[in-house]
Design a protein around this nucleic acid. Structure first.
Length: 821
RNA sequence: GCCGGAGUGGCGGAAUGGUAGACGCGGCGGACUCAAAAUCCGUUGGGGGAUAACCUCGUGUCAGUUCGACUCUGACCUCCGGCACCA
């Protein structure tokens, strides 16, 4: 055997991998046919940003996804598993400013490099369908889609207080502000008033909360639910007619209308439009100073819950119409202009924030919902639970939920309020004051105002000769040739919009474009979209929960309403892979020096080893740590697989009858386990099953138990099962075992349930639930026979001797438990 | 604070009511080698016992359900992720 092994060729990944890579390209093995009659399966992985280097995180996202797509192909589906590049975005422009390279050049050369690295993964991408969203052939249609939203009132421009990142020199969407700082660069965000373009995502808030058609991780649904933040409550208006202003009332939103009799003050956001007018002359200076201070404090400072409540009395009063009481009006920065109406009714007894504020200002705290154990004394803290209404006139004595109904009915009757729903989500701000993005296709004309660029004039091209300087101003703004244009309506002089779109607009529809990425008649070919979409299985990181994944859902629904799509949801199933960490269990980063370069391992151990190691290190959705010794183990195993599969089985002779039967049984068992595991993304246990199988085969060979036929079948099954996970070595072994090219066009092996059953099993003998003996018995052993056998076990005997047998539990094929007392 | 998820050998993990620790890494012992690397074989949760038989402890903690609990129930602790002055 040893001598034979030396004669055979060894596993040389660095030789076979480039060979098959070329062959597959040459044969167009992964070309996806639209006219294939098999059922379709669209399996999509989130496309990467072309940063220039394919790192191990990309491999972790892509190789298991590719394995699953290949697996579906071997299951008989016509699989679309495309790849492309999220090619617009800030890093390219920053490189242009710092190093003088044009963003286009920088991006395309990065793509060039990454495409090569991607090919080494051995993924089954059809490169004919590659999509690059910074090319005019793509962004022309991003602009076209923008125009459809614009024409349908789903895209609009308005002045708004927006998040501005001073480092990125652009506004950000709410979704891109994390704890008051820029999601990209961590710079604290400041607020600015700017005229900006928005998409009306709020119009879809309720529909976006309907997840009934989705098979998505609960975690993502929860995050989207929280982000949309639907709360049911009531609008209540307070009378300010005594102040002599045009406005007669202040509207507030509350989820606790039952506490309306407990209002002892009102608080407005510092940015509230009525704040200034309501301020009495003697308070002007103080109020203005407070507003000024609020404007300059950062989001982080303002949003800190630990901070003490502050605020200033305006000098004015509002009347609570339910009881005719006059309450003082304050401004306070704990009230956010962006939520509800920007004004709150202060109920210190039943809201922790209001309690803190009232305590600070010495305002009355009136209990209107009595806790079951309330003794009538002053509260130490706000009571936010359920209770019986008190101090509330007609509502007294009611449980507070019923009290809420009574009160809202009364104010609705009197026209001072009504039931309403408020959302946390705001419209999606898509303007970016940067060059490297899709230009927003509108012009501004003195006569006609905002005018959409006619569809036949698309694309609005990015000027190639823009200048990139660190001034913080968009190069488009300074580019006269770009800015100055004529109005499509009146022909007079007009100015182009110089803002570009958030790159999340590009990725909100890219999955549609893959069906025919070079189609020049429309954004997508409706026929092919009908055929391929929606995406059956989407995979990617959970960090996109309330950005990309929410935007793409919105876009799909909006395009449906515009009339160009027929479905409601872009991604039917979603799987989030975890994060790959460095060898030190820390997030990989250059500063930590724990970054793993996949190319190093591809060059030595091969792409297959990298792929299967990433799949083996644990459940895919949990992530895991890189291990340089762990991957050696995978490589060792591939060598063993190679060795087993290249043996000459005819030298084995006839084997033994029992041995052969066992080889057949283990083959069927393994086929079943691996197929079920890979189907459910459990790559780690699928590989473990194959390893157990190879361990078994090696032993069976050494004992001379297998006959040539069962051995060949075992090897064939193993190679087929391995093919989706380790495509190169499987292809090579498929050829070397005398099969016709290509393993990747084969069907998965099948198993026969009957053949997976063991004839003999280990029966565990327990006394009072403790294992006392193990015996080998026929699988179909009857309970009577089992009871006889247990009598013969000396060990069991010792533990039941002299004791009364109370009960015997027999689980066929598993155990027999004798309960004694 | 609220909402998720997770706690199992030296490490990654397996087992979702029935033999805890599959599989892999690492360790130890051995074969091959002048030697090393690579490879192969054996062994590997802790304690007791003689390296045996066997006993005992052991899946974050404490209770409970059950013949039997990593698995189910309740309370708590820790870690990770998300959200957070949202009225």
């Amino acid at each position: 055997m040893t001598s034979q092994r030396q004669e055979r060729e060894r596993y040389k990944p660095h030789e076979i991998e480039p060979k098959w890579q070329q062959r597959w390209v040459q044969d167009e093995l992964y070309r996806v046919r639209d006219d294939d009659p098999r059922p379709k399966w669209y399996e999509l992985t989130m496309y990467p940003y072309p940063s220039g280097d394919l790192h191990i995180g990309h491999w972790y996202a892509m190789s298991p996804a590719d394995a699953h797509a290949r697996f579906r192909r071997m299951q008989g589906y016509n699989v679309l598993h495309p790849m492309g590049f999220d090619a617009f975005g800030l890093p390219a422009e920053n490189a242009a400013i710092r190093r003088g390279i044009h963003p286009f050049t920088w991006t395309m050369s990065n793509i060039e490099n990454m495409r090569g690295q991607l090919k080494s993964i051995g993924a089954s991408y059809d490169w004919e369908r590659e999509l690059i969203c910074c090319l005019p052939e793509y962004y022309k249609w991003t602009q076209w889609l923008f125009l459809q939203l614009f024409k349908n009132g789903l895209a609009y421009k308005r002045m708004a207080q927006v998040n501005w990142c001073p480092s990125c020199q652009t506004v950000l969407a709410n979704e891109q502000v994390v704890e008051g700082a820029c999601e990209r660069c961590d710079t604290p965000v400041i607020r600015r008033d700017l005229e900006q373009w928005f998409f009306r995502i709020t119009q879809y808030a309720d529909e976006l909360l309907d997840f009934s058609k989705l098979d998505w991780p609960e975690k993502i649904l929860t995050m989207q639910r929280n982000w949309i933040g639907r709360s049911e409550g009531a609008d209540v208006s307070f009378d300010i007619s005594e102040c002599g202003l045009p406005e007669q009332e202040i509207r507030t939103f509350t989820t606790r209308v039952d506490t309306l009799f407990g209002v002892t003050y009102m608080a407005l956001s510092p940015e509230h439009p009525l704040a200034e007018a309501l301020t009495t002359p003697d308070r002007k200076a103080e109020v203005q100073a407070y507003q000024e201070q609020a404007r300059h404090s950062s989001e982080i400072e303002r949003q800190s819950t630990e901070r003490e409540k502050t605020g200033v009395f305006l000098g004015a009063y509002a009347t609570n119409r339910i009881n005719g009481e006059r309450v003082p009006i304050y401004v306070s920065d704990y009230v956010l202009m962006s939520y509800g109406t920007g004004a709150v009714m202060g109920v210190p007894a039943h809201d922790t924030r209001d309690f803190a504020f009232a305590t600070m200002k010495g305002l009355p705290i009136r209990v209107v919902v009595a806790a079951p154990d309330w003794d009538g004394n002053a509260l130490d803290e706000a009571y936010t639970g359920e209770g019986i209404m008190v101090n509330s006139d007609f509502a007294d004595g009611l449980p507070n939920r019923q009290g809420a109904t009574a009160i809202v009915d009364r104010i609705a009757e009197q026209g001072h309020g009504r039931r309403t729903v408020t959302y946390r989500i705001r419209d999606w701000l898509i303007s970016r004051q940067r060059y490297w993005g899709t230009p927003i296709p509108v012009v501004y004309c003195d006569t006609d105002g905002i005018v959409a660029v006619p569809e036949e004039d698309l694309p609005v091209l990015l000027p190639e000769d823009a200048e990139f300087k660190p001034t913080g101003e968009s190069p488009l703004k300074r580019h006269e040739g770009f800015v100055n244009t004529t109005c499509p309506q009146c022909g007079g002089p007009a100015l182009r919009e110089t803002d570009t779109m958030d790159t999340f607009v590009d990725s909100s529809w890219y999955f549609l474009r893959y069906t025919n990425p070079h189609f020049d008649q429309a954004a997508f070919d409706p026929e092919l979209v009908r055929q391929w979409c929606p995406v059956d299985q989407y995979t990617g990181g959970a960090e996109h929960a309330v950005m990309h994944l929410l935007y793409a859902r919105f876009f799909t629904k909006a395009l449906r309403d515009v009339g160009v799509l027929q479905f409601d949801e872009p991604f039917v199933r979603l799987y989030n892979q975890g994060t790959i960490l460095g060898e030190d269990n820390e997030k990989m980063s250059k500063s930590r020096g724990n970054v793993v370069n996949p190319d190093d391992y591809v060059g030595t151990l091969g792409a297959d080893a990298v792929r299967i190691f990433l799949m083996f290190l644990g459940p895919w959705d949990r992530g895991g740590s890189w291990s340089s010794t762990g991957i050696q183990g995978m490589s060792r195993w591939l060598n063993r697989v190679w060795d087993l599969c290249t043996r000459d089985a005819s030298s084995q002779g006839k084997g033994t009858e029992d041995g052969t039967r066992e080889v057949v049984r283990q083959t069927h068992k393994t086929v079943k386990r691996v197929i079920e595991d890979v189907d459910g993304f459990h790559f780690n246990t699928a590989l473990a099953a194959m390893m157990e199988f190879t361990n078994f085969l090696a032993k069976a060979w050494d004992r001379g138990e297998a006959d040539a036929g069962s051995w060949a079948k075992a090897v064939e099954s193993l190679v087929l099962l391995l093919a989706p996970l380790a495509p190169y070595v499987s292809e090579e072994l498929w050829e070397r075992t005398g099969h016709a090219y290509s393993v990747h066009q084969q069907a998965l092996p099948t198993w026969d349930e009957e053949q997976t059953r063991d004839e003999e099993v280990t029966l565990v003998l327990q006394v009072n639930g403790k294992v006392r003996d193990k015996i080998i018995v026929p699988a179909n052993l009857s309970e009577e026979d089992a009871r006889i056998l247990v009598e013969q076990s000396a060990n069991v005997h010792r533990h039941i001797e002299g004791k009364e047998i109370r009960k015997v539990v027999y689980v066929p094929g598993r155990l027999l438990n004798v309960v004694v007392g």
